[in-house]
Structures are given as C-alpha cells and as structure tokens.
Design a protein around this nucleic acid. Structure first.
Lengths: 109, 109
DNA sequence: CTGGATCCAGCCAGATACTG
DNA sequence: CAGTATCTGGCTGGATCCAG
C-alpha cells in the first residue's frame, strides 16, 4: 500500500489512492468535511474502533500530504484542531460520491 | 482494514471503503471499467508491480463482493475473463471522479 | 494460462507507559 | 489533552512450487 502510483496515464486512479491510503484516511477526511473542525479527542470519540496510535499516524500522514491542517493552541491542557486544507477541499466531490454510493448500497446489503 | 464499517449514518463512506479495500482493488476496477474485459494475464501485464498472489486475492475479493464477474472458459490452456458486474458498474461515477482528481493533481505534484 | 498452497521475512497495528 | 516511544504478536504480501 505504500509504493507509488503505477502509471498515471494508464490509471489516474492510482495516484489518488497513493495520496489517500487506506480506509481510515477516507473516513477522517469525511469527518473533517462534514464537521468542518474537529479536535483530536472528538475524532477519537467518533471512531470508537480506531486505536490511539492509528489515529495519530493517519492524521500525520494526511497532514504531510497537505490535505488537512493542524492548528495547535499552546496552552495547558493542549488543544489541537484539525480541518481540511484548500487541497483537502478539492477532495470533497470524491468524498461526496463515495458517500452517496455507501448510502445507496449499504441498505440493500 | 478488514473490520466492518463504523456507522453508516455518521460516515457512509466507511461502507464504501469496506467493500473496496486497498489501492489494488480500486486500480483493478478502473482497468476493468476502461478496458471492459480483461484476461488474468492482461491485468497482470498492466500491473507490473503487483504480485501473482495479490492479484488473485484481490480479484477473488472483488468477485465475492459481486463487483466483478469471472468468466471461465473450460479449455486447455485455461482462459478466464474478468469484467464489471452491474453492481460493479454502479461504481463508475466514483471511479471517474477519483480518476479526475488524480489527473488534475498528479501533474502539479 | 490461471490459479491454489506453502513458507517465511518484514511490516504493522494494538497495548502500554511516558511526556509536556 | 494530545501526542510519542517501545515492545511484541500477528498479519500480509512476495517468492516459489505444484496442478488442472
């Protein structure tokens, strides 16, 4: 899952899935899209089955891809807010259509 | 990556990514969409970096989800053709928009 | 040609403990 | 609260061999 895209000309999708890796990153993007801004703990609460470490890693990865923005407030106790970047917002049409598919076909499973 | 979706109401995307798992399955769906019908060997040739085992597994998984159809011709040497099912074709809008994102942003990377 | 079965190294995710 | 560090068991994917 970590090697680069195949051949963007043959398969432009391979680039997309090399930027957003795995199910968690899609889910996190969706939450930041629908909730606008979320603190670390809020995300964790909405994802009961994700481990602490996983969430950190995926957030960090998304931040490196510049899809999400991390705003840290230097205070005690710490407070960190995550939100979509402008680049991240370009993913919204993708998120929407994936969600639409999910809504439509999860019911007739 | 294998546990079920979170909560479809909170996150309908989680269902979608629980059906299509990992980068390879997206790539394979894309190839079957653009090429209509592909033999096992053709897919393998188009995916130089996928291993034999991986390709088999992913195809099998997609078949179980009823997203692709496996047509076996009982002859020597064997011939097997893969194509999208009707359910698989419902994924086309998703594939298209993911591909569009890839085309647009892979160039300015 | 299209797979399945097996072996095995390497990665990965979970648990736990620690920090600012 | 929001992470990071470490350890470890288990899973995964690659390579190889076998079969119809």
């Amino acid at each position: 899952m970590k090697s680069g895209p195949i051949d963007p000309l043959v398969c432009p999708i391979s680039y997309t899935v090399s930027i957003v890796r795995g199910k968690w990153q899609w889910v996190i993007l969706w939450l930041l899209y629908t909730e606008k801004v979320q603190r670390y703990g809020e995300l964790k609460k909405r994802l009961p089955t994700i481990s602490h470490k996983m969430l950190s890693q995926q957030l960090s990865s998304l931040e490196q891809e510049e899809l999400i923005h991390r705003e840290e407030y230097p205070q005690i106790p710490p407070k960190v807010e995550y939100s979509l970047t402008e680049k991240g917002k370009t993913m919204i049409p993708v998120l929407e259509i994936m969600a639409e598919w999910g809504r439509r076909y999860s019911s007739q499973a």
